[in-house]
């Protein structure tokens, strides 16, 4: 009987794999959005490293390090109860309404380089918005929990995401810093799930993975 169940189990698995190859569900494509320097690439790198062992892109303390959207495909996330979800993670450039090259000069950047960075960052915002319009099935919205969440760009972006009926998880990042106030973010967006993490240290990311399974699965 036991042997029969085992063979039945493997046969069932094989059969479901066979079916999946024909009726493959479109993968969920999750965009990581948020203002510049919220830690989007740090989180994207952590997700990629935790589940595939790779990295997505370089990080920097100078805003607008990511100026092109980067995609990592086929990330399989599994939860404590054994459920899994396959998703593509898109790390997007920081979305903002104002970009000024003077900001980069403070980090010791040359003027020419800073002007080019400003232009590329502007194109990056347009690209991020383009992805949101066309190709995204769910959003992780990253916020720096040491900063005021009521910035115009955040309110506007959450509004845009809501108007497209996309599932959204708000991540209150940088809880490793002493002046982090994730509660402020929770009260700012009570209509959405908020997960407080430290992308840098990896604190509480398991909680985020569980929430991702719940909302994007």
């Amino acid at each position: 009987m036991k042997i029969f169940l085992q063979t039945f189990g493997t046969a069932k698995k094989k059969f479901s794999n066979f079916l999946n190859s024909f009726f493959k569900k479109k993968r969920t494509r999750i965009g990581i959005y948020g203002p510049p320097n919220a830690g989007k690439t740090t989180l994207a790198n952590r997700i990629a490293r935790d589940w595939t062992g790779d990295a997505i892109g370089p990080v920097s303390e100078i805003p607008h390090e990511t100026r092109r959207a980067r995609k990592k495909e086929d990330i399989i996330i599994s939860g404590a109860n054994g459920s899994t979800v396959t998703m593509d993670i898109v790390d997007t450039p920081g979305v903002t309404t104002k970009i000024d090259y003077h900001e980069f000069l403070e980090f010791g950047m040359e003027k020419d380089e800073a002007i080019i960075r400003a232009r590329e960052a502007t194109e990056g915002v347009a690209e991020a918005m383009h992805w949101l319009r066309e190709d995204i099935d769910g959003v992780i919205y990253m916020l720096d929990s040491t900063l005021d969440p009521f910035m115009q760009v955040n309110i506007m972006m959450i509004g845009i995401i809501e108007s497209r009926n996309l599932p959204v998880i708000i991540v209150a990042n940088k809880i490793d810093l002493p002046d982090a106030a994730p509660a402020r973010i929770r009260s700012a967006f009570p209509q959405h799930p908020v997960v407080a993490i430290s992308g840098l240290e990896g604190r509480n990311v398991e909680d985020l993975y569980e929430t991702m399974l719940e909302y994007f699965g």
């Binding site: 090259y101 400003a118 918005m129």
Partner: peptide, 23 residues
């Protein structure tokens, strides 16, 4: 899409709402 540049180069104001619109 509406992006406004102020001054010579390297300073931009981006209208996000214009970018959120469907083509």
């Amino acid at each position: 899409e509406r992006i406004v540049s102020v001054g010579k180069e390297g300073s931009y104001i981006i209208d996000l709402m214009s970018m959120a619109k469907e083509e």
